[in-house]
Design a protein around this nucleic acid. Sequence first.
DNA 1: ATGCATTTGTTCGTATGTATC
DNA 2: AGATACATACGAACAAATGCA
Lengths: 251, 251
Amino acid sequence: MGGGPRFEPVRAVRAYERVVEQVEEAIEGGDLTPGQHLPSERELMVQFSVSRSTIREALRVLQARGLVRSRPGDPNGAEVLPFSPATLHKSMTTLARVAELSLAELVQFRMVLDSAAILLAARLRTEEQLREICEAVEALRAAAEEDPRGFGAADVAVHDAVARASGNKLIQICTDVVRSIVVKLVAERIADDPDRRALMRRSIRHHEEVLAALRAGDGPLAARLLRKAMYDYYADYVDESERSALRALLE
Amino acid sequence: MGGGPRFEPVRAVRAYERVVEQVEEAIEGGDLTPGQHLPSERELMVQFSVSRSTIREALRVLQARGLVRSRPGDPNGAEVLPFSPATLHKSMTTLARVAELSLAELVQFRMVLDSAAILLAARLRTEEQLREICEAVEALRAAAEEDPRGFGAADVAVHDAVARASGNKLIQICTDVVRSIVVKLVAERIADDPDRRALMRRSIRHHEEVLAALRAGDGPLAARLLRKAMYDYYADYVDESERSALRALLE
DNA sequence: ATGCATTTGTTCGTATGTATC
DNA sequence: AGATACATACGAACAAATGCA
């Protein structure tokens, strides 16, 4: 074994990828901030000394990753976008389809993340955040009586307020992404439920119980109640064989 | 307000996007399964009646989403890939950078997901899975004594075995993604630690305690021990101001 | 409000290196 | 080893869209 230089295997890297890498580094490194614009495609092909097709392929990839957006005719060039969980949402949605995630797995994930959020909220919330949550629950109650169509949106608002109060952006984003996937999956079935008003009433009661525990500062209780509420809400739509996995979180 | 037709706002949709959509539907709908190949670019430009560049931009987007891969000269055309969490990993990594996720938030997320995984594993594991976990812990112990460089990989193997035993693919994937991000963030700092062997010994002890609780079927205890262990492992690398958020999970 | 110059979206043609039969 | 078909990359061109004077 000679002590010569250790060569690493090289992979052929496409021209457009090197363009993507450089732009990506500039954005993640803060040299390009949201709202700023990249040079025009023709300018970029000079700077990178590649053809326009290569530049365009690179821009498509950057766009698919949610980092930039280009509009036809814009003399300013592609715009650097502020972060949005859109690509995370997209990849998790395809994950749900392609990896064949069951509804049970998604609901279970929600039970884990949302109960963690409320546990943290119970312990770390500010007064301001508590007020926001209370108002959201109040709006939920109003929606149930006056505007049943807005019930879903009001419910989202409650959970989002709780997630924000958890103080963890990653939890907030992931709860949001998974919730929207779950909601989409069961939307029709819930809309078809003949006893929708009863479902809403029970949901309101559950929210109020959880809120009471949250105000009392009893995080574990709030988390347990939330998991139970979520189980009751979704159990009917989950295959019997998978319900036991959900019940494993109810202790 | 006339009751006329409700028009929806239209957005100009690019040609390459329509190509992407159709291919995406074919894959998610199961018409194209992993291992199969798309027609060649020249064939695709006939089928979609668009130019070569448009096809190529569409393929770049599909590649960025991890759905296909194309190699130069491949007579079979682009290959449809089996699902991999690579794109989820990518988007979460950029999320961590661009959304400025702190190490504390990432570690907190791990504490939530990994403790949920072990709670579920304690209740739903099969004998086979328990054996795999035990073997992984055994390998960890061996690595600590014989091959310290392999300690990290052995640790990953333990956590992955637990995540698999949870029975939830989404939990498994997300723990994997977030773990690799966290590990990358603290890798240098841990490698520089003068007392690495002591860290490993403590880690081993923690793993054994958690494993004991797991064998005893005490999920909540195992979860609590795991959170504590993870806190002890990472607390030093987290800003003092954010440690309280982590402690909120220790009850 | 109207052109005008510039940019993107898209097309077509061509050259080159590569993988498979 | 050669032929064939392929992906990669380049360059020129036109239409539609945009921003600005």
